[in-house]
Design a protein around this nucleic acid. Structure first.
Length: 310
DNA sequence: CAGACTGCGCATCTCT
DNA sequence: AGAGATGCGC
DNA sequence: GTCTG
């Protein structure tokens, strides 16, 4: 549920560059509605963040994958003047700033934010005064706006993990619960809590739709004591180990691993690992019975969750 | 120089 | 009402 | 915006 990422963390020698690149990324996504530029800027910020040397010039930066002419020039401008004219202009654009603010509410994207601003709704407070114009999702986003932007301490997640497991065990002891995400990677705090729940009867394929639906419903009902609001309810079921791998991340690690899978003639997503035929058409999913299995199949050295912080 | 950049489930809107 | 499209989040 | 074919 976390909307913000931060390549400008710990010992990052290029954090000032990362900051303005991330700001440009947000602008492209929220205001220009160009998610590809957004990703391009984020990739550039990410590669600079993991670079072990302080970048001294645009030319030097340009050697890195993901940084081309335009960002190279921006780095030079920032090095010379300490700021970016493009960013200064954006700061002065009140509508752009308003759109950026509104998209921080979960459920409000670039299109809805622009529409709100067009209709004079330009702040979180404005949203709170127009609850009747919000979807269920957006209402929750506004109600917990401040909370959603806070990080969750590991200790707190451990508490919730305990309560969740206890609750679910009482419902049906065969349920298993795994908290994935950055928590599983050992981080001290997380932006959200990704809980993956499975039940043996869901693994026995098909012919169980009714039972499955009943289980899901009883699960959701049981969670009512712990969960205060429900944004959406689905009945999706996926291959457990691929899901646990995917939801543990990090996203950069996932991208690396998927690329490696392709090299080895497989396609990997959150549902399954499938061989890619010569025609390029994916075949039937490979039988997986552990996370390690996935690594084995694509001949990729096993990494513990803690080693997946990339 | 043109096209890719993951793509899918859910909620909600729009069309018929 | 039902099919399809759109916005959104991940 | 950057990379690839």
């Amino acid at each position: 549920m976390s909307k913000r990422k931060n390549p400008s963390d710990d010992n990052n020698l290029n954090s000032d560059f990362c900051d303005f690149l991330m700001e440009l990324a947000e602008y492209e996504k929220n205001v220009s509605r160009n998610v590809h530029k957004y990703n391009a800027y984020r990739k550039a910020a990410s590669v600079l963040a993991t670079h072990s040397k302080r970048i001294e010039s645009g030319d030097e930066a340009k050697k890195l994958s993901g940084i081309g002419d335009k960002i190279s020039k921006k780095i030079d401008e920032f090095l010379q003047t300490g700021k970016l004219r493009k960013l200064e202009n954006i700061h002065q654009d009140e509508d752009a700033q308003a759109i950026n603010t509104l998209t921080r509410v979960t459920g409000v994207g670039p299109v809805k934010a622009a529409e709100f601003v067009r209709n004079g709704i330009k702040s979180i407070e404005d949203l709170r005064n127009n609850i009747d114009k919000l979807t269920h999702h957006q209402t929750i986003g506004v109600r917990y706006f401040e909370d959603f932007e806070k990080k969750i301490p590991r200790k707190e997640i451990q508490d919730i993990e305990g309560k969740l497991k206890n609750l679910i065990k009482n419902l049906d002891p065969e349920f298993t619960v795994t908290i994935c995400g950055s928590y599983r990677r050992g981080k001290r705090e997380s932006g959200d809590i990704d809980a993956l729940v499975t039940h043996p009867s869901l693994k026995i394929n098909e012919k169980k739709k009714k039972h499955e639906a009943k289980l899901m419903k009883s699960l959701v009902d049981a969670l009512k004591g712990l969960v205060t609001d429900v944004i959406s309810i689905g009945d999706t079921k996926f291959m457990y180990y691929c899901a646990i791998l995917y939801f543990t991340g990090s996203d950069v690690f996932n991208k690396t691993m998927r690329a490696h899978a392709l090299d080895k003639g497989f396609t990997l997503n959150e549902y399954a690992l499938r061989p890619v035929g010569v025609t390029g058409v994916p075949g039937e999913p490979v039988q997986i019975s552990s996370e390690e299995d996935v690594f084995d199949y694509i001949d990729y050295p096993y990494k513990t969750p803690e080693e997946r912080n990339m």
